[in-house]
Write a protein that binds this DNA or RNA. Structure first.
Lengths: 183, 183
DNA sequence: CACAATTCGTTGCATAGGCAACTAGATCTG
DNA sequence: CAGATCTAGTTGCCTATGCAACGAATTGTG
């Protein structure tokens, strides 16, 4: 089912607002139309998407989104320090720290001090953690698959390039903190 | 010295990734590569984008993102009930309620009981509120403009269609309540 | 008309997560 | 080597916000 956005042409200036339907009347000259504002649309899409996933992570595997990101990263790289969990600094280090603690308590990952640099600890999945990883990953991929299935091959390909470009640009527009900037 | 964030732009699986640390060995067969996982990428992009905007809203105008959404909606529709603020149910009603209270306290909007249905209240910008709207809206549009400027015309056009499709699909994948956070 | 069900909006509660201060360890400067 | 500076990770604090219960008003059903 397609959601239809009806675009109403700007109303004439000076129309009375007496009737009840006035509540939905457009202003004379809206500067911004929220439903067309790209950052808003991106947020709506991202939220819907991660909510669908978060539901799976939480209900079926007891994982928060930060925890999922730790798990999947450790499935990807056998050993990682906490600071390398969110490669692009998307998660605040305190968020990672708490996710790691919680996963360790549940016995899904282990921390081993790095003898070459004792500030950091190397993380790795336990067997139990790997089992969860192997159970949740296909489900996550299936959701991604179902999402993308509404796009043509060409659109899928284009989208990846667009996201690359926009992400790089968005990064340059947020001149913020350089490091573990939360996002 | 300064930590360098390495941006890998192309979507192709990175092999020659110049890594700073030795602990980046890839696992034998990662099921999911986080940096290529679409929902993750969408979240990163949406977060970066709304962070850039949130900074403007907050620092220059003292507005939270929910407050901005209320303001821009009232700039678009002269009178609206609170429940129609987030047309697609992206904001939880309690979030809207709190944003509305805060904006009213600051004298940026007024609430008027709807005599035809006294459960709801109609909201409207005050002059002060409209002034802020007229100041912040162009800035928001400028950010959107700068974001989109890295895309070709065709990509821009394609993107809108893609977001429409993906949003509709994401909605159908999250059958339950459609409340959402934002940013 | 009475009463159940629904809707709008508010609020108490609990939790997530950003921020900043802190500890411990490493690195850089002289 | 000593002190300054930087980095990894933790934690207290605080705000934002989802949830659910609630009151008030409306609508639907008999």
């Amino acid at each position: 089912m397609q959601r239809i956005v009806i675009l109403v042409a700007p109303a004439t200036i000076g129309m009375g607002m007496a009737s009840a339907s006035a509540a939905k009347k457009e202003a004379s000259d809206p500067l911004v139309v929220l439903e067309q504002f790209l950052p808003y649309r991106l947020n709506v899409l991202a939220s819907l998407t991660s909510n669908a996933l978060a539901q799976i992570y939480a209900e079926r595997f007891g994982l928060s989104i930060p925890a999922w990101r730790v798990i999947v990263t450790l499935g990807q790289y056998e050993h990682r320090a906490a600071r390398d969990i969110a490669p692009d600094g998307v998660m605040h280090k305190s968020t990672v720290s708490r996710a790691v603690s919680s996963l360790e308590e549940r016995g899904l990952i282990v921390r081993r001090p790095n003898l070459e640099d004792r500030r950091e600890e190397l993380l790795a999945l336990t067997d139990k953690g790997r089992a969860i990883y192997e159970a949740v990953a296909p489900e996550a991929l299936a959701v991604e698959e179902r999402l993308m299935s509404v796009l043509t091959r060409e659109e899928q390909h284009t989208l990846v390039g667009i996201i690359d470009k926009l992400t790089a640009q968005a990064r340059s527009l947020a001149p913020n903190t350089e490091e573990e900037n939360g996002a």
